[in-house]
């Protein structure tokens, strides 16, 4: 076991899942306040057919090109969600549900065909469903690192713009902020984060890495900046711990472990969160009750003294 952990390839993989977790945590925060948490899930599922089609065309597994395929397919999914909403009276959640299941179904169908027909070199495509970080080689890792770092930088330098875009887009537009342009950048960074993560976490579970850290962070802070930082932290640590645990077993998928770690952070936040954790709320109510009671008894004491 320790031999795996100390191998340089594994350290690279750890670094990449950490950066992925950080990027996903940050983008997840944006999605959370854009009220589009489910959007990430739909776009992730929509990426699968792109991966398989890219593989069918190339006949080999080059992560960068598979990611490009995934991104194109994901963006088509995003376009469909937009288009269905504007052209019909179907609401956003229904449109997302449709795109999610249809694209994923198409992906699985193509995957079955590829598995039946081609030779042995397609093995490993399955890992795009649940994620297999250990199967990544150094070039994959570098691709992931670069893209994830780009996403983090875009969120960080436009911090103030993201904040007003999420809080009050109409006012932002009045100030001259190009809302349409930001919408495009938002979709691009969201899709990039998703497709970068699908080899490590898988199309089914990558959304969890976008959703859970930001929700957990919300329990600790009332500042957008700290929420972004905490969410990145939760995401990053989940990425590292999940990859670590999955590496202990032989051929264990990475995605589920990352998600389980993230979920543990959520449960801890739900209970102990400083701002809206259950425990803190309870204690505050109890303290308040006690205060009211003691005030009451002291005032009744005074009254009885008067009598």
């Amino acid at each position: 076991m320790w031999s795996i952990l100390s191998s340089s390839n594994f350290q690279w993989v750890l670094a990449s899942t950490m950066i992925l977790g950080i990027a996903a945590g940050m983008i997840g925060c944006l999605a959370y306040w854009k009220k589009q948490s489910l959007m990430s899930d739909a776009l992730a599922h929509a990426a699968l057919p792109g991966v398989i089609i890219a593989f069918l065309i190339l006949g080999e597994k080059n992560l960068f090109l598979l990611i490009m395929g995934a991104a194109v397919s994901s963006l088509i999914g995003a376009f469909f969600i937009q288009w269905i909403q504007s052209a019909t009276r179907i609401t956003e959640d229904t449109a997302m549900g449709m795109v999610l299941s249809i694209f994923f179904g198409l992906g699985i169908m193509l995957l079955t065909i590829v598995n039946r027909s081609a030779g042995g070199n397609q093995s490993g495509l399955d890992s795009f469903i649940f994620g297999q970080a250990a199967s990544m080689v150094k070039s994959d890792v570098i691709t992931m690192l670069l893209l994830a770092v780009a996403v983090i930088v875009i969120v960080a330098i436009g911090f103030k713009e993201w904040k007003i875009y999420l809080f009050d887009p109409q006012f932002a537009k009045g100030l001259g902020l190009p809302i349409k342009g930001i919408n495009i950048v938002y979709t691009l960074v969201l899709v990039t984060t998703i497709v970068v993560g699908i080899q490590a976490v898988g199309v089914i579970l990558i959304a969890a890495l976008l959703i859970i850290p930001s929700v957990s962070a919300r329990y600790w802070t009332n500042s957008f900046l700290y929420m972004l930082i905490l969410s990145a932290l939760f995401g990053g640590v989940s990425g590292v711990l999940g990859t670590f645990i999955s590496a202990v077993g032989n051929g264990w998928p990475t995605g589920p472990f990352i998600v389980i770690v993230a979920a543990s952070f959520f449960i801890l936040s739900l209970i102990f969160g400083k701002e809206r954790g259950i425990l803190v709320n309870r204690l505050a109510i109890i303290a308040h009750k006690r205060q009211l009671k003691s005030r009451k008894s002291s005032s009744s004491l005074k009254r009885s003294e008067l009598i």
Partner: peptide
């Protein structure tokens, strides 16, 4: 028209009025 649950404080919201003058980024 906005979600007041957004994690920010009053001063920060007022500052948003200056974003155009502060300059983007």
């Amino acid at each position: 028209s906005v979600d007041w649950d957004f994690p920010t404080n009053a001063l920060d919201v007022v500052l948003m009025g200056l974003y155009g003058r502060i300059g983007w980024l």
